[in-house]
Simulated assay, not measured.
Amino acid sequence: MLQLIATDLDGTLLAPDHTVNPDTAATLQKLEAMGVKFAIATGRHYCDVKAIRSVLGIRAYLITSNGARVHDPDDVQIHAENIEPELVRELTQPEFSAGTSLSLYLSNEWLIAAPNEDLMKYHQDSGFFYRVADVPNYDGEDVGKILYIGEHAHLLELETRIRERFADELYVTFSALDCLEVMAPTVSKGHALTVVLGELGIDAEHCAAFGDNLNDKEMLQTAGHPFIMGNANPRLVEALPHLPRIASNAEAGVALKLHELFGI
């Protein structure tokens, strides 16, 4: 019997317009009433996801900034890992940030180097938004995630340069084709999921997980019952070819699979 459902948001639980599907919310609420627990695992900021959780109407654990922060359903922080400040200061310089929209995720704030109104579409349900700051001169403290947004081809080159320069000093992944994300080396959704499983006293074999992109890889490898979205990044499918694929987020694939798994 499944006891915990861990799910990504964008490209997975949320509709393609990055909003909550009412039928999906109703499905989660029904399962919660049956005693099922939830963990929302995303690259988004904690303050953003807390608001989305309210729209979903469930008491979920929040794994945010790709696992750099974990909060319980009462918003108590139970896990946090930051990038070393000197690495933040180096990674925010033009050598790495040129050609991208650069952001920093702090515990309670989102700093951006220059306005980017295109990002508004991701925050319709939460209302959480950035503050423009002098990011290249920020001291590097309290940074859970560095986010570079840009053209995929450019980000692929940037990914290679960061890996070559820093090797195992950082965890580097994509949350979308246009989003390259950098965290401390021990951060991942998979590691954060083990924290939640430990808090709940649930074995991984009683956990199902849903994801669509490379930052979901470790979470899918941790859960006993992992599922890849039909709209998944081909690199994720290639990395985990044995995992079952379900319907896309446009088809509310997570809700459809949960109906099948729980017989509702």
Rank of each mutant, 00 (worst) to 15 (best):
I5C: 03
D8I: 00
G11R: 09
L14H: 02
L14R: 04
A15K: 11
P16V: 15
V20I: 13
P22C: 05
V36F: 09
A39I: 09
I40T: 04
T42D: 11
C47L: 15
I58L: 09
Y61F: 15
N66K: 13
G67L: 12
D72W: 10
N82R: 12
E86L: 04
E90N: 09
E90L: 12
L91M: 13
F96N: 01
F96D: 01
S97C: 02
S97V: 00
G99S: 06
G99Y: 05
L102F: 04
S107P: 06
A113R: 10
F128P: 09
R131M: 04
G144T: 01
I146V: 12
L147E: 05
E151S: 07
H152C: 01
H154Y: 07
L156D: 08
T160V: 07
I162D: 09
L170C: 02
T173N: 05
F174L: 09
L177T: 11
L177H: 12
C179N: 12
E181G: 00
V187F: 03
V187R: 09
L193A: 03
E199H: 15
E205F: 06
E205N: 14
H206A: 09
A208P: 00
G211Y: 03
A232R: 08
E238I: 02
L240C: 09
S248M: 13
E251A: 13
V254K: 04
A255M: 00
L258Q: 10
G263D: 14
